[in-house]
Amino acid sequence: MSARGPRSTWFWFLAGPALLGFACFNLAPMAYSLWLSLCRYEVVSPPRFIGFGNYAYLFVHDPSFWPSVRVTLAFTLTQLPLSIVASLGFALALNQPIRGRGFLRSLFFLPSILPQAVFAVVFVYLFQADGGVLNGILGCLGIRGQAWTTNPAWALPVLVTASMWGFGYPLVVFLGGLQNVPRELYEAAHMDGAGPWERFRHVTLPLISPVIFFNLVMGTIGALKVFDLAYVFSVTQGKPPGGPARATLFYGLNLYEQAFGYFHMGLASAMAWLLFAVVLVITAVNFRLGRRWVHYGD
C-alpha cells in the first residue's frame, strides 16, 4: 500500500462526517437556493420555473431593491472607513506604555462582546425624539432636537454611530499587528531623524498593512451583510423593518423581508446569489488592489 493510500483513508475517515454535514447543510441548500432563484416560489405552492425572471424583476421593477443597495453602500462607505480609522487610532493609543493599558484594552473591547441588536435598542432610546437622552440634553441647552430615528436623513447616521461601538474586534487585530512591528525598525528610523508621523507613515503602516487589509476585507463583508442592527432598530420602534421611507432598508434586511416577511423565496434566493456575487467580486478586487499596498515582509 502506498504511503498516500492510508493517509487518504485517514483524511476521509476524519473529515468525512464534517464534509458530509457541509454537503448536506451548506452545499445542498446553496444549490437548491440557486435553483429557487430561477423559480417563483412562495412556500404555499410548488416552485415554478421562470428563468431569470426574478433577476429581471429585481433590476428593473422591484421598488425596494435599488434603495436597499443604496442604503447598504452608503453604510459601507461611511461606517467602514470610520471604523478602521477609529479602531486604528485607539489601537495606536492603547499600544503606548500608559498606565492601566490592560484595563483600557478590555474596556474598549467590552462592547464588542454584545450583539449589534443591543446597540440598536440602546440607540433607539438614546436618540428617540420624544423623551430620548440626546434630545433631553439638547433641550437643556435650548436647542430643539430632531426626530433622529424616524427622519430618513438621520436614521442611517444613527445606525452608523450605533455600529461603531463594535470596533473592538478590529482594534484587537490592529493591536496584534502593532505588537509585531519590530522595535529596532522604529529605533533605526528615529536615528535617521524620522519624526512620529514619518515613523507611522513609513514603518508602522507598511508593516501592519496585512492587518489593515484583513480588517478591510472582513469589514466590507460584514457591512454588506448588516441585518440585525437594522431589524432591531425598526422593531424596537414598533415600525416595519427598513423605515422610515426605506432609509434603513439594508440589503440583508430587504432579503430577509422578501424571504420571511413576504415569502418570495425565489426572489430572496436571487438576492442572496447577487449578494454572494458582489461580495466575491469586491473581495477579489480588494485582493487585486491589495497587491499594490499590502506588504507581507517578503
Binding site: 430618513p152 416595519p240 423605515g243 422610515p244 421611507a245 416577511g261 413576504y262
Partner: peptide
Amino acid sequence: PYFLEMMYNLIQPEVDRMLLGE
C-alpha cells in the same frame, strides 16, 4: 394575497415621505 407587502413595502414609504414634507 400581496396586500401586506404592497402596504408595507410599496405604499408606506411614500406615506412616510409625505409626512416628512417631501
